[in-house]
């Protein structure tokens, strides 16, 4: 049997400006899915998040996967080394930054 674990990395967490989720160690896993849920979003606000990976949980690089949602969505990730997080921000239609309350669940298998 493979190992499976889902971590609720962020639960109803309010981010006022920049969004950076907790550095999550998951080198044991072969595959990951980030589930992102936006709570009570302002009308028109979009969440733009980039999947990032890291050699040490401190120095981060864009992995290439991008999330753009106003409600909820998911992103699949593979071949990510030891650490994963999401980074980005929420924006109003006019481009100004908006606060956002989000939950992020990370489903891992390997």
């Amino acid at each position: 049997m493979k190992t499976f674990y889902s971590s609720v990395v962020e639960l109803r967490q309010e981010f006022v400006t920049d969004i950076e989720t907790h550095p999550y160690e998951c080198g044991w896993a072969d595959e990951a899915i980030f589930f992102v849920e936006v709570h009570a979003p302002e009308p028109g606000v979009r969440l733009g998040l980039r999947v990032q990976l890291s050699p040490d949980g401190i120095r981060w690089h864009d992995e290439g996967t991008v999330i753009d949602t106003g409600t909820s969505t998911f992103a699949r990730v593979t071949h990510f080394g030891g650490f994963l997080r999401l980074a980005g921000a929420a924006h109003r239609p006019d481009g100004t930054a908006a606060p956002a309350t989000i939950s992020v669940r990370l489903a891992l298998k390997g």
């Binding site: 971590s7 609720v8 040490d56 650490f83």
Partner: peptide
């Protein structure tokens, strides 16, 4: 009570020392 940090399986990997591993194995 809902924003404590998350628990995870770790290889104890660091920037300068590399992977420390565990007392018996990796994780």
């Amino acid at each position: 009570l809902i924003h404590w940090g998350p628990t995870m399986l770790s290889s104890a990997t660091f920037a300068f020392g590399g992977t420390h591993g565990s007392a018996n194995g990796t994780y």
